[in-house]
Simulated assay, not measured.
Amino acid sequence: MDALSVILLLLCLPVYVACSLFLLHNPCLLHKRKKLNFHCRHISHRGGSGEKIENTMEAFTHAVAVCTEMLEMDCHLTLDGCVVVSHDKNLLRQSGCDKTISSLRFQDLPLYKERLEVTFYVGHYSTGKDREFVLLEDVFKKFPNMPMMIEIKENNDLLIKKVSCLVKQYDRESITVWASEESEVMTKCQKQNPSIPYMFTMKRGLLLLLLFYTGLLPFVPLGESVLLFYLPRVINRTYIPEESYLKNRFVVYLIQKLTMRKSLFEHLSKRGLQVQLFVCNEESDIEAAFAVGATGVLTDYPSLLSNYLRKHPLPPPAVH
């Protein structure tokens, strides 16, 4: 590199940094703000799996009764082609039956265990009168106006198509969110129904961080509508992950420092995206999530979150 190139680079760099910082705080000068039909601060994880058995109709009904604003759930396909709400593909943890959902007809699915440990609150258990698996269609019928985040738990074209058809049938495209950590699955979801808002996959989330730290984010359009991510402080405290690398204290500390950036979350919020942190099952975690800029919190304890929001009313969503 010759001297002139070095001088030009040194002159351009401050301009680039200044423009990036300015647009980070004023993104709507470049990007049209997303207008979603929901703004959810209170999201019930698996329907509120700490207060009722996860993903049952009783859990969803209870969460709605205590004023949740969104239901989060996961879907699988049964042997006879029914879209069933369930987090796990294998039924062992949930029911004690070591079989996959795809190997059974809907009518042959076992009951949930009488006591089920809360995944994100180790050592705590939930119970309930309802222990039956539920069809996604029945949840749509029961709560026609409730926003829902639906995670596609397997790379299954028929499952994606059937979920899309149900969303269309019940006129829910504007209040349903496609969710998946896998880029290949999300690509299929978007192709199947591009009208449904969607979240960042793991790969896209890493790209988001790279864009943020290089200053490029303010210049790049984003198709996603929701950023869903762990609140890192719950890892190895209320939630014990299976991944060995997440058991390393330094790794979790690094994730905390790199991801919990208020300026990033505020930038996304100004662009009309929603930032949802999970899973917050203690009041201090709920407080920490909102303090860092989350627009919404996922919890297994919808009553706890409702009580927190009553005691600590948040300002209305900003309109830019």
Rank of each mutant, 00 (worst) to 15 (best):
D2H: 02
S5A: 15
S20I: 12
C28Y: 04
L29M: 09
L29N: 12
H31F: 06
R33S: 04
R33P: 11
N37R: 10
R46D: 08
G48W: 09
G50R: 00
E54V: 13
E54N: 05
E58K: 03
E58H: 13
A59N: 01
F60A: 11
T61S: 09
T68M: 04
T68D: 11
L71E: 07
L71R: 08
E72S: 07
H76V: 06
V83W: 01
D88P: 14
K89P: 07
N90A: 05
R93Q: 13
D98R: 05
K99P: 13
T100Q: 14
S102C: 03
S103K: 01
S103Y: 05
R105C: 14
Q107C: 10
Y112G: 06
E114G: 12
T119E: 08
V122F: 08
G128T: 13
K129W: 05
K129N: 14
K129E: 15
E132W: 05
F140L: 04
K142R: 12
K142H: 06
F143S: 04
P144Q: 01
M148R: 04
M149V: 00
M149N: 14
I150P: 03
I150T: 01
E154P: 00
K161A: 02
K161W: 07
K162Y: 02
S164N: 01
Q169Y: 03
Y170H: 15
S174Q: 11
S174H: 11
S174W: 06
I175W: 03
V177K: 01
S180D: 10
S180T: 03
S180L: 06
E182H: 15
M186W: 03
K191G: 11
Q192P: 04
N193V: 00
P194Q: 01
S195W: 08
P197Y: 06
M202W: 14
L206T: 05
L207M: 08
L207E: 14
L209T: 05
L210Q: 01
L210G: 05
G215M: 12
L217D: 10
P218N: 07
E224P: 06
E224W: 07
F229L: 10
F229H: 15
R233G: 01
I235Y: 03
L246S: 02
L246V: 02
K247F: 02
R249Q: 12
F250L: 13
Q256I: 10
L258R: 04
T259E: 13
T259D: 06
T259I: 14
R261S: 13
F265N: 00
F265Y: 15
F265I: 10
L268S: 03
S269H: 10
L273M: 14
L277K: 12
E282S: 11
I286E: 12
A289I: 04
A289C: 09
A291F: 02
A291M: 07
A291N: 13
G293C: 11
G293M: 13
T295A: 07
T295M: 05
G296D: 09
D300E: 02
Y301H: 01
S303C: 08
L305M: 12
L305S: 06
H312A: 13
H312D: 07
P313D: 00
L314Q: 09
P317G: 13
